[in-house]
Design a protein around this nucleic acid. Structure first.
Length: 425
RNA sequence: GGAGACGUGCCAGAGCGGCCGAAUGGACUUCACUGCUAAUGAAGGGUCUGGGUUAAACCGGACCGGGGGUUCAAAUCCCCCCGUCUCCGCCA
């Protein structure tokens, strides 16, 4: 949710941002109108209520004889209060709904335009030249006995898979490496619930435009989270945090569920786009003035991970039109996938400024002691998809895969993953 | 799954339908006292929000798990939901 005082006093700031995002100007106009209608309805209710409160003190101090007459008089006022209150809360609901449609004000410097208008901030690593025809991650995964899509489909359907043997080990290795990095940087590890209540899903903004990508259990009215960000953002809802010792950083591990509605036919091969995967997510609560610097730190930690795994990548500054509604700015890191001859997103980090925290009522105390909305940031530190880049880029002609040094301690020291004989699989 | 109890401010814990934004402890902040700490004494605090002011002062409204209802008036009465705890049963 955007800052209402900005909406009221400085709507131009919002208008500029909305334009950069390519959003309908009517959204802002509607919100302003609904907000002012709510405020006047609220003022009307409050003045009636004030009158009634005064009357009530007279009633309670009145003598037994006077009382019935006074009560008779105030009845009409009570009815007005009730009606005004109903009108005010109706107006509030309308205003809230209108205001929620406004997306976060983008940070200065965010490139304009849509998905294709991102700016590449930097690249790292070589695109490998193979003197053999490189195999894709699934072919490699099958040779290694690491990825089993057929049985995934048999058990759960399309876009499900089993990670087996070194595949399972490899995922856990990446997660552990990431977790250890996070711990070293002062993150608190958190294993989060993956089923959440509607109000949390709603509050974190995931039931907006992308509601159809979310799994829902109607019988229990619970939602399966597509990222631990949901639980991490809800974790401190309705709380006042102590940020005087610096940011509070969580490393949330969870399985993530995505229905991938609307992506039929895209990335159908392998584990690039699946319904279920694991992710270690960084989530930070900090003060608004620290948020931009923290965002840079998050992307730096992500880059460190990719470097450790020997991946080639580029860091992109996502264009305004391609930002999520909560993000003021977003950096994606995309790794080079040899067989696709392109970069694919492995991480994403967003600075949500006070947008998420405002709706979830997560605040901190400013130096003057006043509570103010905290800033929240999130970023990927490892996911199952990383296996795709890892397998492909470190493959060798015989189908074996070199293990980057940083991962070896988590794989019992193995330096090379060797193909299994077909019969065993 | 069955039975019951409870949810009040930072914490503990009172609360008769109006005198309750809420007793009393503790913690906290400030001041006093003491050579310092401790102890003691005094004072002060919540959150959201409208108006007002340069800023205050000041004047309103809302908030006692959440949502409805009864009433002139609800922390207090009624209903629903959520959560916690205890006992019994069952399962891992």
């Amino acid at each position: 949710m955007i800052d209402l005082s900005v909406l009221r006093n400085n709507p131009d700031v919002i208008a500029t941002s909305q334009t950069a995002r390519g959003n309908d100007p009517q959204i802002l106009a509607d919100a302003i109108a609904a907000d002012s209608a709510w405020r006047s309805a609220q003022a009307e209710f409050e003045s009636y209520r004030a009158e009634q409160n005064q009357f009530n003190t007279r009633v309670k101090t009145a003598s037994k004889e006077e009382r019935p007459a006074l009560i008779e008089q105030v009845k009409e006022l009570a009815a007005k209060v009730k009606a005004a209150q109903a009108a005010a809360s109706e107006a509030e609901a309308v205003a809230k709904a209108a205001v929620y449609k406004i997306e976060n004000v983008i940070e200065e410097g965010v490139p304009g335009g849509g998905e294709e208008n991102f700016v590449t901030l930097r690249t790292h690593g070589e695109k490998p030249e193979f003197d053999f025809t490189p195999k894709d991650h699934l072919e490699l995964g099958e040779l290694l006995g690491a990825i089993d899509m057929q049985r995934g489909a048999k058990v759960s359907g399309a876009r499900f898979y089993f990670l087996r043997g070194v595949g399972a080990q490899l995922e856990l290795a990446i997660m552990q490496l990431a977790l250890n990095k996070a711990l070293a940087a002062g993150f608190i590890p958190l294993i989060t619930p993956t089923l959440v209540k509607p109000e949390i899903m709603q509050g974190t903004g995931f039931l907006g435009e992308h509601a159809d990508e979310v799994y829902h259990l109607p019988q229990q009215d619970l939602y399966l989270t597509g990222t631990s960000e949901v639980a991490l953002a809800g974790y401190h809802a309705d709380e006042i945090l102590d940020l005087s010792d610096g940011p509070i950083r969580y490393a949330g591990w969870s399985t993530c569920y995505r229905s991938e509605a609307g992506s039929h036919g895209k990335d159908t091969r392998g584990i690039v786009r699946v319904h279920q995967f694991n992710k270690l997510e960084m989530f930070v609560y900090t003060t608004p003035d620290q948020a931009t610097a923290e965002h840079e730190r998050l992307v730096a930690w992500q880059e460190e991970m990719l470097k450790d795994l020997g991946l080639s990548y580029r860091v992109i500054d996502v264009a305004a039109g391609d930002l999520g509604s909560s993000a003021a700015r977003k950096y994606d890191i995309e790794a080079w996938i040899p067989t696709q001859n392109t970069y694919r997103e492995l991480t994403s980090t967003s600075n949500c400024t006070g947008y998420q925290a405002r709706r979830l009522a997560t605040r901190y105390r400013t130096e003057s002691g006043k509570p103010a909305p905290a800033a929240t940031l999130n970023g990927t530190l490892a996911t199952t998809r990383w296996l795709v880049a890892l397998l492909e880029i470190h493959q060798r002609a015989d189908g074996s895969v070199a293990v980057p040094e940083a991962l070896r301690p988590y794989l019992g020291g193995q330096a090379v993953l060797q193909p299994e004989t077909a019969g065993k699989r």
